[in-house]
């Protein structure tokens, strides 16, 4: 599995080779998506870790124990359902089963099926969907 994290470092931690330690000891692949790190003033890394669930959990525990502040990055679909007029235009493009019209012709939304493809964002004539900017959970 793959998960994205924001890692916050204190100035002293910046001096440590944390990323290579992670790769060697925890068997995870690390993709650095963004880095803002400088010697003497701490920093922030956005990384995508891939490995087994156990390896990812162990990596997070390791990072937290040495003092890195770890937050998982999540991307999600936000839906302003109060303004929905139940037209159904979004169901035309939703293949995940997250959006459908029920027997009463009302729109139903089940976020657990959503794969955050974003097609509904452009399909909704009321502009009620938004893919959240990646945020720290």
């Amino acid at each position: 599995m793959k998960k994205r994290y924001a890692l916050l470092f204190s100035p002293t931690l910046v001096e440590q080779p944390i990323v290579s330690k992670l790769a060697r000891s925890y068997d995870v692949d690390i993709n650095i998506l963004n880095a803002d790190v400088a010697s003497g003033r701490g920093g922030k890394l956005i990384v995508e870790l891939s490995g087994t669930e156990q390896d990812l959990d162990a990596s997070v525990i390791y990072l937290s124990e040495i003092g890195v502040i770890v937050s998982e990055m999540v991307k999600e679909l936000l839906f302003n359902q109060d303004e929905c007029i139940d037209c159904g235009a979004c169901t035309a493009v939703c293949s995940s089963g997250a959006l459908w019209m029920d027997a009463e012709a009302r729109l139903q939304f089940d976020v657990s099926h959503c794969v955050v493809c974003g097609l509904c964002v452009h399909a909704c004539p009321m502009c009620l969907f938004e893919v959240s900017h990646e945020r720290e959970a």
Partner: peptide
């Protein structure tokens, strides 16, 4: 082929 309405039947 999947079909979808554009006008609101509920309304």
């Amino acid at each position: 082929v999947k079909t979808a309405p554009l006008s609101s039947l509920a309304k």
